[in-house]
């Protein structure tokens, strides 16, 4: 599966894929921007606006107006990501969160603390998804931080639907999740 269906209903969708499905998420942002306003939280330094502009241009001649429809903010630490989600007001506009777990995989923050912060993040996502569609992308942890897999599980547990851009069996494994080492989940190479 390479395309994301257009989210209209209020719900929390989680996309799990290598590189946090960056290209598909950018494409999705472009498609939504042509239709109306949306909000983007970039938690993994992923929002390359150029492919978005090109995709928008394919759909409409009013490229600038469509790009103005996208309001984004970037978070570079998990504390910032939490603060950004706390500040987002529930809205019927779609909300895209890019690479949510990237900063939570950061080794500078001890895992228990990352888990605690993620616990604070999830209620905000779920509150936002009561008012409008929320699409969150995430990647499996890289091989050097394989022990951070519980973060991904926590996120998947709270989702209304999961887009398995990973092989389905790998995702199944991630949802059962005994111990990270025993999983067949392909870890992100970088």
């Amino acid at each position: 599966m390479n395309e994301l269906a257009l989210p209209i209903e209020p719900q929390l969708l989680v996309v799990v894929a290598p590189h946090a499905a960056r290209d598909q998420m950018l494409e999705l942002a472009a498609t939504l921007a042509v239709r109306g306003p949306l909000r983007v939280v970039d938690a993994g330094n992923q929002f390359n606006a150029y492919p978005v502009a090109r995709a928008v241009r394919r759909h409409t001649a009013r490229m600038r107006a469509a790009l103005e429809n996208i309001r984004l903010a970037r978070g570079f630490t998990c504390y910032q990501v939490l603060a950004m989600l706390e500040q987002l007001q529930p809205s019927s506009q779609p909300t895209l969160v890019f690479d949510l777990l990237a900063t939570f995989y950061d080794e500078d923050v001890p895992l228990p603390q990352s888990l605690e912060l993620l616990d604070q993040v999830l209620p905000h996502l779920s509150a936002l998804s009561k008012a409008g569609p929320v699409v969150v992308s995430a990647r499996p942890p890289g091989t050097v931080v394989a022990e951070r897999l519980p973060l991904l599980q926590k996120l998947l547990d709270g989702a209304d639907a999961v887009y398995p851009l990973l092989p389905p069996e790998a995702l199944q494994a991630a949802r059962r999740l005994p111990a990270p080492r025993q999983l067949g989940l392909p870890l992100d190479p970088d």
Partner: peptide, 8 residues
Amino acid sequence: SEQPKTAL
């Protein structure tokens, strides 16, 4: 964190 800005 960053104040929201548009893609432009």
